[in-house]
């Protein structure tokens, strides 16, 4: 499965609480849409670390890396290249 699909599924399954999956586009801010909170981000980080086998450093915990499906995909691809 593609990374975008995996991330999308994880977010819908864990944070969308009955909201329609169509409400989430790949560029939507997860924070601004009220989809994720501080513990949600930590769950997302654990999922990424377990699924893609790298550590998310404290200073990488920023919206530029994690706040939309597209940003997550780019971040994961960058990390995997290192």
């Amino acid at each position: 499965m593609e990374i975008a699909q995996q991330i999308n599924n994880f977010i819908i399954d864990n944070f969308m609480m009955g909201r329609s999956p169509e409400e989430l586009t790949e560029d939507d801010s997860l924070l601004e849409k009220g989809i994720i909170d501080s513990t949600g981000v930590l769950e997302l980080v654990s999922f990424i670390e377990e699924t893609y086998g790298f550590t998310v450093e404290d200073d990488e915990l920023v919206p530029e890396n994690l706040d939309s499906v597209n940003k997550l995909v780019n971040y994961i691809n960058r990390k995997r290249q290192h």
Partner: peptide, 9 residues
């Protein structure tokens, strides 16, 4: 600020 999801912010 409701962005504590990103504590550094």
């Amino acid at each position: 600020d409701n962005r504590f999801a990103y504590p550094n912010i």
